[in-house]
Amino acid sequence: MEALKRLEAVLSETLFGQEAVIRTLLATATAGGHVLFEGLPGLGKTLLAKSFAQASGLSYRRIQFTPDLLPADVTGTLVLRDGAFTFQPGPLFAQVVLADEINRATPKTQSALLEAMQEGAVTIAGERHALPSPFLVLATQNPVEIEGTYPLPEAQLDRFMAKIEITNPPRTVWMRILSEEPKAPEPVVDADAFHEARARVDQVRVSSAALEAVTNLALLAAEHAALRFGVSPRGAKAWLRLAKAMALLGGRAHVDWEDLRRAARPALIHRLFLTEEAEFEGITPHQVLEELVQKAMPSITPR
């Protein structure tokens, strides 16, 4: 996909040293999913979301989530005009929506995104309103803040195809960050490129061995002593579709083991919920996921 390669190159000139993050974002967008960015402030989460929309030629709106934000502030509401009620769309009606600091809003407001993320529409006063296509939610949250936050419930987390963890760039990139201003991207693709790419993701082949590996991991997760419950069918499908998008971006017509490995962490890490005993013992979801991947796909060597 030459168009997506151009987009990847442009974004690499905006967020330095985060090539893996950019590739995962593009794969998720190509697969038709939504992204939850997690990282400390100042690492470029908002910059990447805005730059992605600009370079993609897609409409963009940012919603700053706060405790006093109401569901109608997100979805829109009915307003009285000339003696009749008409629907006033909220900021959710854009192709790329940045839900900034999503865990600062109350669960009621967070839940306003559920229908939009699942069905690409919102229902106001019994009337359904379709959202633009393609529709992509990019949410951000700080992994260490607890004060004044509302953790996302399992049902909300499950609507994100990928959780992308952004960490500090390597030492070699710091000088570039400090001495060079990122370029404001120009549009290099359009909505049609994403529609075409999503259709091509459907055509990527998956071997029976790959399907068996996904099944193995789901069954192992359900029986793992450190987890409250396993990976849902939605989560397994998200992992497989993200791997297919990774293959497409890599120029392959089939999913290989490396595609599954690359897709496992962003697709599954936010779907693994530890028991209280495991948390007390210091076990992390990352450790559990690595163990599950190794057992489900023994031929893969961990990084």
Rank of each mutant, 00 (worst) to 15 (best):
L7V: 07
R234E: 15
G17V: 05
L268P: 06
V122R: 03
R252K: 15
E290C: 05
L113I: 08
P153Q: 02
V214A: 09
S179G: 14
P285D: 11
L47W: 00
A247E: 10
A53Y: 05
T167A: 12
P187W: 00
A191H: 07
I269W: 01
V173P: 03
F37W: 07
E291P: 02
A112C: 12
S179T: 15
W239D: 05
L217Q: 03
A155I: 10
S56C: 12
H224L: 13
A209F: 02
E276C: 14
T167D: 00
A296D: 11
E147M: 11
F194Y: 14
E279A: 10
S207C: 13
A278T: 07
M1T: 09
S51V: 09
A197T: 01
G230F: 02
A121S: 14
R262Y: 00
G44R: 08
R265P: 02
T215L: 13
E276W: 08
L272F: 06
S208R: 04
P298A: 12
S133W: 04
V255I: 01
F16D: 10
K108L: 15
D158M: 11
V288Q: 03
L211C: 04
P89S: 13
M161A: 11
E38S: 00
F65D: 04
A197H: 04
L4K: 00
S179R: 14
A31K: 08
T109Y: 06
D259C: 12
G90N: 10
I146C: 05
R205M: 15
V96L: 10
E115N: 09
T106E: 15
A3Y: 00
E8I: 09
E127D: 13
T28N: 01
L289I: 01
V122Y: 01
A225I: 06
L70G: 02
H129A: 12
F16H: 04
D202R: 13
A3R: 10
F65S: 06
S179Q: 15
V288P: 10
R23A: 14
E181C: 11
E13I: 04
E154Y: 08
K50H: 12
L47A: 06
D259W: 00
Q287E: 15
W174A: 03
L178N: 00
G39C: 09
L136N: 02
S299Q: 15
A49F: 12
D68S: 08
G32E: 12
E277T: 14
Q64T: 01
